[in-house]
Nucleic acid binder design. Structure first.
Lengths: 152, 152
DNA sequence: TCGAGTGAGTTCGTCAAGTGAACTCAGCCG
DNA sequence: CGGCTGAGTTCACTTGACGAACTCACTCGA
């Protein structure tokens, strides 16, 4: 059994969840990917309590996932908005995976709200696993998790 | 701006998080993918409070992500273990995405604990986006989210 | 210059959820 | 019978989420 043979304390799943696993964090990022940048817009579309939203945005900025950018709208004082960094953009696969599972299992009546398409050709996109030899894997059963450093 | 043009109430990201977004749920599934099946093993490797673990396992069973399978070890009474259903297996991409981000950004010192390899050829695997025309996308910026039903 | 308006954030009382230790319960075994 | 073990419950405590009210800084219209 593999469950005793690796070090849970450095598990990347747990580590990532420690950063973005709190309530609202991933929903904030979903909106960020859709172009939302200002506090009031996050608050309005998410309906999250202001205190929580403040905390989540601060945490995401501290973690380098969002960055604060100053701006001024006409007739307003200078404020800052929140934009994804590269580190934040790299969380895109997490949101895509969550979205696809929800589309598959939770969207019985009616349809899912959003669809992802290739910007260049307009075709729907899917998330797949490929190996470095170029094979496309058919699912989780084609994957073998090995402790880092094991022999192939 | 796209942020006003779609229906958040049927967002699949939020829906999926409502099912598996509670504390410990995704870590339970991580262990399930690694072969853990019994309550005591989940409890031991995760260190989660028993009450929470009971609740999370029950929720995952109710949601059809795990199923209870009876078994008896020699010299013990009959118990049940928890196994992934297809619905549970389909959450694999979520865990892979979380793991890859953590590998990339949280594993500075030392190495990530686990690596994913193709069962057939032994090569490391990566998660990528492809479109139905066969193009491989290079990242989040190649994706255009469109409200379902929009023109291509 | 004053007062209302607004975006962003804080404070506060309340309530839900997570935590860890102690307790329960059922069946097997000596 | 009496103890052991895996699974689960109960309980007191702490942490986190919630929503309304309040604060603060700045702009604008009067």
């Amino acid at each position: 059994m593999s469950e005793a043979l690796w070090d849970r304390s450095r598990c990347s799943v747990a580590g990532t969840l420690a950063v973005v696993g709190e309530k609202w964090s991933l929903l904030v990022l979903r909106e960020a990917f859709l172009g939302v940048r200002r506090f009031a817009d996050f608050q309005r579309v998410l309906g999250a309590p202001r205190a929580v939203l403040t905390d989540r945005l601060n945490t995401l900025v501290e973690q380098g996932i969002l960055r604060r950018v100053p701006y001024q709208a006409e007739g307003e004082r200078q404020r800052h908005e929140y934009r994804l960094t590269q580190k934040g953009v790299d969380l895109h696969p997490v949101l895509v995976a969550l979205m696809r599972w929800g589309d598959q299992y939770l969207a019985e009546d009616g349809e899912a709200a959003l669809e992802l398409r290739h910007r260049d050709c307009g075709e729907p996109v899917h998330q797949v696993l490929v190996c470095e030899a170029g094979h496309q894997l058919s699912g989780a059963r084609d994957v073998r998790p090995v402790p880092r450093g094991s022999r192939a």
